[in-house]
C-alpha cells in the first residue's frame, strides 16, 4: 500500500503503521482514512497529502 506525505509538515502516513493516536488501525490504506482525518503532526487535511514518490 502507498505511503502519503503531508505537504505542510513532511509527516508520512504509513498504512502499515496506521495512526494509533488518531484511532486508525495498522493496515488502513490512505484512501480508506475518514474524510475528516487530519495529519497527526500539523493538523493538515487529507487533501494536503501527496503520494510518496
Amino acid at each position: 500500500m502507498d505511503r502519503y506525505v503531508c505537504t505542510v509538515c513532511g509527516y508520512t502516513y504509513d498504512p502499515a503503521q496506521g495512526d494509533p493516536d488518531g484511532g486508525i488501525k495498522p493496515g488502513t490504506a490512505f484512501k480508506d482514512l475518514p474524510d475528516d482525518w487530519t495529519c497527526p503532526v500539523c493538523g493538515a487535511s487529507k487533501d494536503q497529502f501527496e503520494k510518496e514518490s
Binding site: V8, C9, V41, C42, G43, A44
Partner: peptide, 9 residues
C-alpha cells in the same frame, strides 16, 4: 487556540 505549524506543530 492551536496554531499548528505557525511555525512548529
Amino acid at each position: 487556540i492551536e496554531t499548528r505549524m505557525l511555525h512548529w506543530p
